[in-house]
Each structure stands twice: as C-alpha cells, then as structure tokens.
Amino acid sequence: MTRPGLPKLIATDLDGTLVRSDDTVSAYTHAVLDRVRAAGIRVVGATGRGPRLTELTRNDIRDADFLVLAQGGWVIDQQESRLLRSARLPGRDLARALQALEAEVGPLSVMVEALDHDDAPLWGDYDPTWRYPVTVEPRTRDECLTSDVIKAFARSFERDVDDLLAAARRVVPPHVASVTQAGLNYVEICPPEVDKGTGLAVVAQAVGVDPADVLVFGDMPNDLPMFAWAGWSRVAVANAHPELLAVADEVTLTNDEDGVAVYLDKLLSK
C-alpha cells in the first residue's frame, strides 16, 4: 500500500528526462527510484526506444516494474517476464503514410525497426548524423515495406522536425498510423492508437491503477499522450520541448540536474 498523498504509479521518459546528456543515469537517481519502489509505488520506464534496446533500457531504469517501449507499442511486465503488448504496423499502411507525407514535404530518408531481438539492426537509409550507436542494414524502400514493422523513422533534410511533424499530423490519417517525434530529428511512424498513453493504460489495467493515481515525467512531443492520460501530476523537465511545457502541471530541474529524482526525493520527504 502506498502512503496517502502519494501516487500509486510513476512513469518516466528516459532520454532527455531521466537520462542525462552524457547518456548516463546518476547514482542519486537510481537510489531515489529504489526509495520510490520501497514506498510501494510502481515504477514504469516509458520510452520511444524499441525492443532492440531493452537491455539498455533495463540498465537505465533498474527499478522499473514495467517497460513501455516503442512509443507504447511494446509493454513488458518485468516482474512476470511477460509481454503485455506487441503492436506492429503493416508494411502497406506504412507505405500509405510515407506516400502521403512525401506528397506534402518531398523526399524522405527512412529507416524501419522490424526486428525485436536485442541489438537488432534498423533497415533502410543510413544517416551518419544519428547520435546513438546503431547498425543499419541497407535496404530499399520496397524491401522495408514487405513486412510488418514496429515503427519507422522518417527524416527530411529540408525541413525542421517540428515542421515535419506538423505536416504528418495533417496528412497521415490516425486510423492508418500514429505520428510523433522524440528529439532525434525524425518523425516516428507507429501503429494506429499506439502512444505512451495507450501503453500506460495497458500497465494500469494490469495492476488496477486509475490514471488519477499516476504521476508522469517527460520532455518531448512523444510524451504528450501520457501527459493527457495521467491525472496525479504531469511534470516536465526544464529542458523540455515547448509543446510539453505548455501542458505540464509542474516543471522540475533539467535532466542534467537530475530533475526527476529531485522532484521524487522531495515528494517522498513530505
């Protein structure tokens, strides 16, 4: 049982929120999250990272009871070692989304995430500006679209990613695919009705927690759906995207200042 006045579940984004700019998570943050679990509060890591980065994610949020991966399309119960959700986007629907977007903005560089094993390669167009270590297996667009995918990354070298996302929101029908961006200069194209809000709803249903008892942390537009879904409080780090800052209930310190841990430390100390 959690103490009165505390949330029953906390969910935090990783990159740009819990994880610092040097791609590390501080010992202080790990210790605070351990205290959160000891207080009876479930911990969820909610990230855009796909299942190919599961082990990295587990290392960054060691105390997570659940992982919400791939923008909500992949949900893992860590305690039971059980997959609760595994959504995929048919290649024909991805083709339709890309066609609509390219008709609006011009040619795109595209990579797809199709394989779910750890350290699996991406397929498609290699981008030397991708900031994380990644293996890209060169494949033509047609080859990438022959099977269902977990998600796709689409980049315009002519347009800012926020402009590209605005175009995608206009022209990609929500029943075909969902679109977002997570700070990688790419629009991410996911299965319809897949976002961090629907991913967290899977977790909440599994453990019997109401959205009103859920506290969330984030920094980018891909966190907007879980901010709309959660009800206890929606907290943005100070380095967050303007779209998220505009809807946050509270703002904590930046990711490099361990803003999530500082907020939770104060919450537990009340």
Score class of each variant (00 low, 15 high):
140 T>G: 15
99 Q>L: 09
101 L>R: 06
78 Q>G: 01
143 E>K: 09
147 S>Y: 10
190 C>V: 12
100 A>T: 00
102 E>R: 09
114 A>W: 11
133 P>R: 02
112 V>F: 06
172 V>I: 15
135 T>Y: 06
199 G>E: 05
163 D>E: 15
128 P>G: 08
201 A>K: 09
108 L>Y: 11
168 A>K: 02
117 H>Q: 08
150 I>D: 05
71 Q>C: 12
161 V>Y: 04
111 M>S: 01
104 E>F: 03
166 A>C: 00
189 I>G: 08
72 G>Y: 11
165 L>W: 01
83 L>N: 03
165 L>S: 03
142 D>L: 02
77 D>G: 03
134 V>S: 10
195 D>T: 00
179 V>Y: 13
202 V>A: 13
197 G>R: 06
86 S>Y: 10
75 V>S: 10
171 V>H: 12
137 E>S: 12
82 R>P: 05
114 A>F: 05
140 T>V: 07
88 R>D: 03
73 G>A: 11
68 V>G: 09
81 S>F: 01
185 N>K: 14
142 D>G: 05
194 V>G: 07
133 P>L: 06
175 H>N: 15
158 E>I: 00
73 G>I: 07
163 D>R: 09
140 T>P: 04
164 L>A: 08
86 S>G: 12
125 D>V: 12
143 E>A: 15
149 V>F: 06
172 V>F: 01
143 E>I: 07
152 A>M: 00
172 V>L: 04
105 V>Y: 07
134 V>W: 02
186 Y>P: 11
84 L>R: 00
102 E>D: 04
162 D>Q: 14
70 A>D: 15
120 A>Y: 02
152 A>Q: 08
82 R>V: 04
65 D>V: 04
131 R>G: 07
169 R>N: 10
94 L>M: 09
99 Q>S: 12
203 V>D: 10
89 L>T: 02
148 D>E: 14
113 E>D: 14
77 D>H: 07
66 F>S: 10
117 H>C: 03
112 V>P: 06
157 F>R: 11
133 P>D: 08
174 P>C: 02
91 G>F: 05
146 T>Q: 15
86 S>P: 00
156 S>I: 05
108 L>E: 13
92 R>V: 10
128 P>N: 11
147 S>W: 00
111 M>E: 12
100 A>C: 06
104 E>A: 15
129 T>I: 13
124 G>D: 05
87 A>P: 00
117 H>E: 08
103 A>L: 11
169 R>V: 13
128 P>D: 11
144 C>E: 02
180 T>H: 09
175 H>Q: 15
93 D>Y: 03
